[in-house]
Design a protein around this nucleic acid. Structure first.
Lengths: 142, 142
DNA sequence: TATTGTTATACTCTATAACTATA
DNA sequence: TATAGTTATAGAGTATAACAATA
């Protein structure tokens, strides 16, 4: 059970996280790729292959929603679908060469604004953000 | 100019922030109010009165987009529009009594999941998140 | 029958362009 | 002319319900 004070703490941290996330979305240098599309490319870039259902679970969206995102990426030539040999209901999704290229390029351009913002902080403040980032990952994966 | 290492740091922090923000959005207990609507209520709750244009600037959305959000809030009875006496082109937006009530109630319900997540952290980890929240605010306001 | 992916449909949030009223 | 707000319209992302193919 949480005290009122504790709940206010959660509220303040949540608002800060959500505001910065929105700011980062607005300030991104790259305009050609949505967050959901880039999120899928990032998972594939990291792990190699996922089925559509796995991607939907990872990104916590519905299967139809993920299907639409994958359609866009496939039309753009960044991913390909291949039928699974063992279970023919499944569809494996992998990055194309163009997909690999866009991941690196987009990540670089997208961080331009945030990079400049971090530049204005002290080394100690950046260290705090790094530590917090690790904790936030833990919380997200909970 | 930032080094490649520095840029990777920005990328990791950005991804952590955006992932947690999405997780918080998905895990919210309250389903009746969108983030954009609650964002507006939070500004009004904090400061009292804003014009439509000011709200659009604060939330970094277009005027038509904010107009729509305010329409929803007005229909729901949470805000009211009043013409500005000095400049009759302007519209002042303020919280109604129902608006004040919903702000406190929604914030409490919305933080249930995050509250429980924070409960599993150490006091030191929570302190790091609090410090990071202040830094994130500074960065967002940049 | 249950599961995986897809299609059909609708709702929300966002934007740009065009319009109205006021300065 | 310029500015504040609004309306019209369109695009992207999301969801649920219904369907097809496969297990």
């Amino acid at each position: 059970m949480s005290s009122p004070t504790f709940s206010r703490e959660a509220s303040e941290i949540r608002i800060s996280v959500q505001r910065l996330a929105r700011r980062l979305r607005n300030e991104r240098a790259d305009d050609t790729m949505s967050d959901s599309q880039l999120g899928v490319l990032a998972w594939l870039s990291h792990t190699g292959t996922f089925t559509l259902g796995e991607l939907a679970a990872k990104e916590r969206v519905s299967a139809p929603s993920m299907n639409r995102t994958v359609n866009c990426l496939e039309e753009a030539g960044f991913v390909r679908r291949t039928a699974d040999d063992e279970d023919r209901r499944k569809v494996n999704i992998t990055l194309t060469d163009a997909g690999h290229e866009i991941v690196a390029e987009t990540a670089r351009r997208r961080d331009e604004w945030f990079d400049a913002a971090l530049d204005e902080l002290t080394a100690e403040e950046r260290a705090t953000l790094r530590e917090a980032a690790a904790i936030m990952r833990k919380v997200s994966d909970r």
